[in-house]
Design a protein around this nucleic acid. Structure first.
Lengths: 189, 189
DNA sequence: GTCTATATTCAGATAGAC
DNA sequence: GTCTATCTGAATATAGAC
């Protein structure tokens, strides 16, 4: 039922998705949904909560400091792994991820703030990661790392809208992002 | 009135913005809106059309081929100018840009396709630009340029959600994006 | 072109049987 | 837990005066 809601929210938006639509796709009657969710807003809330929670659970550990890796390219490898997981998660949860991006503002202020807070956990971990990379000398320290982070996460957040496994692997995209961050795409690098 | 709508659509989403809300912010009565727009959907359509049209009008010329520049860094400079204009436009039209990203799917299929077509004009120009850069030897030609384009546009499309002139200029962000594309951010480049 | 007042539609939510 | 039937409120949209 939550899956059906996520899909319809993504396809038709929030206003034009009715509880009857959701019920139909979940093979129920409209009234039955209210046994699980007290309102349409609560259903949306459940959809959005699911994706932000999953994304955080899967990505945080990869960003967290971990000395075991060692070696000169520690940050590069960790970056690649984390951004790959970030993209993979949003792609796998496509309906949820897109619903999140588009529909957070359909919820009242308190719910938005709740999600903003959950999201900031992840943001902070990314910020810390980049800061550590710069301190370790694996990244220039004369650039605004906040802007770098937001550009990277922005790019990654979009992938699920255009990624097509038939046109290229996710690995190759993670490679490109990593290359752009560290090396750039000029020839001979 | 259209400005008021864009702002409310961004702030509250589509479903929770009523025609009365829009009217109030436009200092009218709800009924009067229907003199200009036959429906709430038509009002949304006008908002979305405004931003995609403006963005195309402002960005396309900067991407278009132009031999007058000459010199070795032609593509680099043109890229920087175009991505700067793209970000500047979406920032200046923040309410509109965010409404577009979030609310396209609240419209029926035919309207979505209309916008998808307008958008693809711009996409194609970006694609052509990157292809020319690669052919001219200013960019590696062994990467998926389609993915590069989508990553870059994705990053740029997000800026208006977090850009804060008090924390750094848009010029510096355009510099970072340009540096990432061509040079990467490893030290000593 | 803008207003007031109102019609109409429709979707979210509820009650109560099973 | 799921159904049917229904209520109810709210918001889009309309009509007609000014």
């Amino acid at each position: 039922m939550r899956n059906a809601a996520a899909r319809l929210f993504r396809e038709r938006g929030y206003a034009s998705t009715t509880m009857r639509d959701v019920a139909e796709h979940a093979e129920m009657q409209a009234g039955s949904i209210y046994y699980y969710y007290p309102s349409k807003q609560a259903l949306l809330h459940a959809v959005l909560d699911h994706v932000i929670t999953t994304l955080t659970r899967r990505t945080l550990p990869l960003l967290a400091d971990d000395d075991s890796a060692g070696g000169g390219c520690r940050f590069r490898h960790r970056f690649r792994a984390a951004i790959h997981e970030h993209m993979l998660t949003t792609i796998e949860m496509g309906d949820y991820a897109l619903s999140f991006r588009r529909l957070v503002n359909e919820l009242p202020e308190d719910a938005r703030q709740e999600f903003a807070q959950k999201r900031s956990q992840l943001d902070e971990q990314w910020a810390q990661f980049l800061l550590n990379a710069a301190r370790a000398g694996e990244m220039r320290d004369d650039v605004d790392l906040g802007a770098v982070r937001l550009l990277l996460v922005g790019a990654a957040n979009f992938t699920h809208e255009w990624f097509n496994p038939e046109r290229g692997s996710l690995d190759s995209i993670a490679d490109i992002v990593t290359a752009m961050l560290f090396d750039g795409l000029s020839p001979g690098r």
